[in-house]
């Protein structure tokens, strides 16, 4: 019974990773590609690590897999946030069907700071 559960978790994690790869090939824009790859790939790796945790009985291996799981879920948002910030500073082109860009001329090109209002109307 538990074997079927482990196998289903393993294959569904692999399918989520396939969805991430298809998204990174097919989406039109860097930011939508990041939307596909970060969430789906870390969720797929989490499902596969969960199947490892359910499969083994030794405590040390379970702890090791849980360390990898926690580490991935802590670091994937930080890394993708840094890539998105750098890409916005480099002015990577958005998709032509983009409706709203809320950060438009709200950042300073010289000292690389984002402001909550546009830098021309800032008083200080």
């Amino acid at each position: 019974m538990i074997e079927w559960f482990v196998a289903i978790l393993l294959v569904s994690g692999a399918i989520f990773m396939l969805l991430a790869a298809v998204g990174v090939l097919r989406f039109p824009d860097l930011f939508s590609r990041m939307h596909a790859t970060t969430k789906a790939s870390s969720f797929g790796a989490g499902l596969m690590l969960l199947s490892v945790i359910l499969h083994v009985q030794e405590l040390f291996i379970i702890l090791e897999a849980m360390i990898v799981l926690i580490f991935i879920f802590l670091t994937a948002p930080v890394a993708s946030h840094m890539i998105g910030r750098a890409a916005y500073f480099l002015q990577v082109p958005l998709w032509k069907g983009t409706i709203i860009d809320e950060l438009h001329d709200r950042y300073n090109l010289h000292n690389h700071t984002l402001a909550s209002e546009s830098p021309d109307s800032a008083t200080d």
């Binding site: 990773m17 990174v24 860097l30 870390s42 790796a45 690590l49 890394a79 480099l90």
Partner: peptide, 22 residues
Amino acid sequence: STPDRIVALDLITMLTLGMILA
């Protein structure tokens, strides 16, 4: 662009991790 390649490299590393788990 270069950030596209960085995102693809990140995904490739995650896929390798999944392959090691399998």
